[in-house]
Design a protein around this nucleic acid. Structure first.
Lengths: 231, 231
DNA sequence: GACATTAGTGACGCGGTGTTACTAATTCGC
DNA sequence: GCGAATTAGTAACACCGCGTCACTAATGTC
């Protein structure tokens, strides 16, 4: 294999404009909801994702945390980067490149800013094309990560019932799970431990409260899971 | 829940410099290898990932394809975005933000540029801190995606033996797989179909050639896989 | 006290997976 | 030639994850 002549790579950075687009997600009712902000008068769409450019010496994640806190009035409990979006799709601030970051926050009573509103993820208003792409990818990222990291537990208080936990998983995955299977798998995973407390939720049998307490498991090396192929 | 006073979000894009850092990966020998380029004299490290800023009206993926083609002398068969890296870690071109993109290419006889060289992923030379991060995340992304999309098949010619395929999976995942289990799982996945041809590889029994031919399977809805938790 | 409602468990069965052990077809060394 | 080495491929067993059905348990409502 003969080497090609060295064509020296003339690498040079490109000057561009950058925005951090934040997808704040929260379980509301029985579906995932996105927090959108009203756009200034004159914008092509009436709503957009909360976004901003990072300040000087501010990391992308810090910028996302700042934007989320400003809109939500509280700090989300989970952040995950979605990716960079640099295609021709229009951004509300005409950013050359958007970095999408998804933030998850519990359903508890947070107080969003007056110009912000929750929208069910299946019933969004018109958004700038790039923001629509970012939201779609955010949901996909969350659904992919939910069974690889303890996202769901960060959407619940320290003590929770197994029905609460299953409900969070069902909202995040947008599908029904079987009760017995869910509990058996959870048991085998050593991720939770029971507490002494029970909660009476009105009607029905009181439920035992659990807490998130992952314990080391013997390394289970699995084979290749062809069954996860999407194609 | 009372609404907080509307603090109008003064969103504004940030001017910054952007680079696309490309991690070209290929199975070489029995390990994954990364293609690095020699840096100009005077740089702090002697090697770096191939990178460049996207040209005007060039998408991030297009820029990655251009850079990869220039260094490799051929077009990689798979591209996946790794993410955006905007922290304080140093970049060879002092880019404010790097978008990492991983490219996979078969082991076949490509002709890298004269100033480029393969390095086993476990034995890299000194790299700029951000590039080291990008490479680590690239390997993680590949290992995560390999059993969710047919990456491995794009690293092989159209016709391949099952031993070839298993070898690719073992290199990508960096662990040994059991032959019988691998074949049984592959059979059940309806991803390949046998051809009439057989290949004699010198010593040993000739192997039947297969081709990638995914067929629709009945939708298998699985439960939550707590067993994939990393924590 | 009957009924609805929610929580929690036991048991059956199928199928995927790890493992061992075997058969099959070729080349190499003598 | 002929056995040893080498690689390909399969059969069969045991186990376990998981979907499912059916049941018990504890509360509130009428």
């Amino acid at each position: 294999m003969r080497e090609r002549p060295a064509v020296p790579m003339k690498s040079a950075v490109r000057r561009t404009t950058l925005a951090v687009d934040v997808v704040v997600l929260s379980p509301r009712g029985d579906a995932l909801a996105v927090l959108l902000v009203r756009t200034p008068a004159g914008a092509r769409e009436r709503w957009s994702l909360p976004w901003d450019g990072p300040a000087a010496d501010e990391s992308l994640e810090d910028a996302a945390a700042r934007v989320a806190h400003q809109v939500l009035g509280a700090a989300p409990t989970v952040f995950e980067q979605i990716g960079a979006f640099g295609d021709a799709k229009r951004h509300p601030g005409d950013a050359g490149v958007s970095v999408g970051i998804v933030a998850l926050t519990p359903a508890s009573a947070t107080v969003p800013a007056a110009d912000a509103e929750w929208f069910a993820i299946g019933a969004l208003p018109s958004l700038a094309p790039r923001h629509r792409t970012v939201v779609e990818r955010a949901a996909a990222v969350v659904r992919q990560r939910v069974d690889q990291s303890p996202l769901a537990f960060r959407l619940l208080p320290a003590a929770f019932t197994l029905s609460d936990l299953q409900g969070i998983y069902e909202i995040l995955l947008d599908r029904h799970l079987h009760k017995a299977s869910f509990r058996r798998a959870l048991q085998a995973s050593y991720l939770v431990e029971p507490t002494d407390e029970w909660r009476s939720e009105g009607r029905g049998r009181p439920a035992q409260l659990f807490r998130f307490a992952p314990r080391k498991r013997r390394g289970v090396r699995r084979g290749v899971r062809f069954d996860l192929f999407s194609e």
